[in-house]
Every structure is written in structure tokens, then in C-alpha cells.
């Protein structure tokens, strides 16, 4: 393990907390105390998700976890932020705020760390940011898929029940494919 990671590992708790603080600060100020303080994960799903998943991301980043492990934790945070009052940039800013947290927490302890170690960590973070971008787009696509599916399912059921559709099954052809999983 290199010097920077050693320093961060020693201060992992503080790093997690600082990064989570920075993420929580993106919410309206009147709500931050609640989001920060309520620890029951069912009473405060938003605050808990951010805190727990940020902690898992820090652990993963410092331990060199696989991309798919990191993706799970990224997904949990981004899935929430993708449907909140954020622009895409605001929704994903939290990824880059890791740099700010690292700089603040490592502080003087990292003064002697070679620049290459920072570059390596930042490169890792860049990869995380690219993953985040994919996840965010995936969540937004999902929202619109769901909207389209709701509209299609409603119309399809009505047409079918009104006897206005004859599928291949009834027409004597090969079995028809339902329009979506579990719907016909």
C-alpha cells in the first residue's frame, strides 16, 4: 500500500464523514440536520443511503475494489439523485467531491506524498465518474421506459379486452410474444 492510501486508511472514518457531509450539503439547508442526524435507515432512507453507500465507496476505493462492486454502491446513490431536483451535473457532483474530502482530510499528513500517488487516486476516481455517468443515464432511461410502459400497458389491455386485437395465437399462427415481460 502506498503512502497516500495509508494516510487515508488511517483516517477513513473522517474521510467517509466528510465526503458524506459534502453530499448532504447539496440538499436544502433546512433539511441537512435531519438527513445527517436521523440514523434509522427506514425513517431516513435518503440520509442513510448516502451515508452508508459513501462509506462503502470509500472502503472500495481505498481497497481497490472491482468496478462492479463500486457500481452497486454508486447505483444506490445515483438512483435516488437521478429523480431529485438536480441537474445532471448537480446529481453527479458528489463523485468529484471525493477529491475535496481527500485534500481536507489528508491535509499535512499527505504533504510528503509523491504527486504520482495523487494522480493514481484521481485516475481511479475518473473511472468512477465515468461509471457514474453510465449509471445516471441508465436511471433516466429507466424513468422514461417506465412512463412509456405504463401508457402502452394501459392502452394494450383496453384494446385487447374490448376485442379490438387479434393476436397470432387466435389467428391460428405461431404463439404471439407478449409486449413486455409478464404482460399480455
Amino acid at each position: 500500500m502506498n503512502g497516500l492510501l495509508n494516510v487515508l486508511q488511517e483516517k477513513r472514518k473522517a474521510l467517509e464523514e466528510r465526503w458524506a457531509e459534502l453530499v448532504l450539503a447539496s440538499y436544502p439547508q433546512q433539511s441537512v440536520p435531519f438527513l445527517r442526524q436521523e440514523r434509522d435507515r427506514f425513517a431516513n432512507p435518503l440520509g442513510s443511503t448516502i451515508r452508508n453507500e459513501i462509506a462503502a465507496l470509500v472502503e472500495g476505493l481505498l481497497a481497490g475494489a472491482d468496478a462492479d462492486v463500486l457500481a452497486t454502491h454508486l447505483d444506490a446513490i445515483i438512483r435516488v439523485r437521478a429523480v431529485q431536483d438536480f441537474t445532471p451535473a448537480e446529481a453527479l457532483r458528489f463523485v468529484f467531491q471525493f477529491k475535496q474530502a481527500v485534500a481536507e482530510i489528508a491535509g499535512d499528513d499527505a504533504a510528503g506524498v509523491p504527486a504520482g500517488e495523487f494522480l493514481a487516486l484521481h485516475a481511479r476516481l475518473d473511472e468512477l465518474a465515468l461509471q457514474a455517468f453510465g449509471i445516471y443515464v441508465g436511471c433516466r432511461e429507466r424513468v422514461f421506459e417506465i412512463r412509456a410502459r405504463e401508457a402502452t400497458a394501459r392502452t394494450y389491455s383496453l384494446l385487447k379486452q374490448a376485442g379490438l386485437l387479434v393476436d397470432a395465437d387466435e389467428a391460428g399462427g405461431p404463439p404471439a410474444c407478449p409486449p413486455a415481460e409478464g404482460r399480455s
Partner: peptide, 14 residues
């Protein structure tokens, strides 16, 4: 009541 609304819990909008 403040932190009991599902819309508040999901949005953080006061």
C-alpha cells in the same frame, strides 16, 4: 410531522 412525509423523505424539499 416534519420528517414523516414520504415526499419529504424522498426529496429533502422542506
Amino acid at each position: 410531522c416534519a420528517d414523516k412525509c414520504h415526499f419529504y423523505l424522498g426529496s429533502g424539499d422542506p
